[in-house]
Write a protein that binds this DNA or RNA. Structure first.
Lengths: 140, 140
DNA sequence: ATAAATGCAAATGATTTGCAGGCTC
DNA sequence: GAGCCTGCAAATCATTTGCATTTAT
C-alpha cells in the first residue's frame, strides 16, 4: 500500500477540488506516481500508452497543466530540454544534473535556503519561489 | 571612454578569434553594450533596427549564439519566457526576478557559492555551472 | 579571392488551442 | 443531463536552418 496509495492520493486530491478523474487521467496519475526519474511530457505519454491506456499527447499536456495548478506535481525546466515533471511530495528540494549522463539528483540544504531568504530580505523582497540547479560532472 | 569602449572591447575580442565584424554585428554589439536591462532576442532586434541598422532576426539569433560561444555574452533562461541576454562582465552573479514587475536584479553571495561546491563535492561531483534564481515580491 | 555572414522563407520542436463529439459526476 | 474532457488537427512561439547572394578580410 505504498506505491498504490500515491496514485490514489493524487486522485483524491483532484476529486476534492472538482477535477474529474477520467480513464486517461487515472492512467497518467499512475505513471507519475510510479516515476522514479524526472520524465518529460512525451515520455509520460509513451509510458501511459505502454501501460495500455489510450491517451493523446494533447491530453497529457492538459492534464499536466491541471496537476501543476493543483500542486500535485512540479514542473522542472532545465536548460535546453523539454520540461520534466515530478510528483510534489511536499518537501522542497533542489536539483543537480549530471551534464554527462543527464541524470537528475535531488538535494536539500537548509543553509542555502536560509541564505536565499536573507539576501532577498536585505534587498527588501520576500521569496515567492526559487530555482537552484547545479550542472555537475563526476569527479575523477 | 566607458560605454564606448565596451562595444569596442567586444569587437576586439571577436576579431581576435577570427569572427568577422559586419555592419549588423557591430550594431548588435553596440546595443548589447548599452543594455542596462536584460533584453531578449526580439528586443535586441528592435533596438538595432531603431538605431538604424538593418538586421534580420535570424542574424540576431546567429550572432547571439556566436557571442555566447565566445563568452562575450551570457544567455539567461528564466521560467516561461524567451531567453534574455546580458553582457558577460567577467564576475559571476545570480539573478533575482520581481514576479510582479518582471524586473531582473543581480546579486552575488560567496557563502552560497561555497555551499554549492561543498554539496556537489560531498556527492562526488564538481560543478560545471549552476543557476540560481530567486523569484521575489517586494515586501510591504 | 574566398570563406564567412546575411536575408529570406521554410523547417523545427515543444506546447497550446478550437471545435465537435464523449464521458464523468 | 450538463458541463467538463478528449482527440484531432491546425495554430503558436521561440528558435534554427537551407540556400542563394553579399561582404569582410
Amino acid at each position: 500500500m505504498e506505491i498504490e496509495s500515491r496514485a490514489q492520493a493524487f486522485e483524491d486530491a483532484l476529486r476534492r477540488v472538482g477535477v474529474r478523474i477520467t480513464r486517461q487521467r487515472a492512467a497518467l496519475l499512475r505513471v507519475l506516481a510510479d516515476a522514479e526519474d524526472h520524465p518529460d511530457a512525451t515520455q509520460l505519454h509513451q509510458r501511459a500508452m505502454a501501460a495500455g491506456a489510450g491517451v493523446s499527447l494533447a491530453t497529457v499536456y492538459r492534464t499536466l497543466a491541471a496537476l501543476e495548478t493543483q500542486g500535485v506535481i512540479q514542473k522542472l525546466e532545465f536548460e535546453g530540454e523539454p520540461a520534466r515533471f515530478e510528483p510534489a511530495d511536499g518537501n522542497h528540494h533542489d536539483h543537480m544534473i549530471d551534464v554527462e549522463t543527464g541524470e537528475v539528483m535531488e538535494f536539500v540544504n537548509e543553509r542555502i535556503e536560509r541564505l536565499q531568504a536573507e539576501i532577498a530580505a536585505e534587498m527588501g523582497y520576500e521569496i515567492v519561489r526559487h530555482r537552484l540547479e547545479l550542472y555537475v560532472r563526476r569527479r575523477r
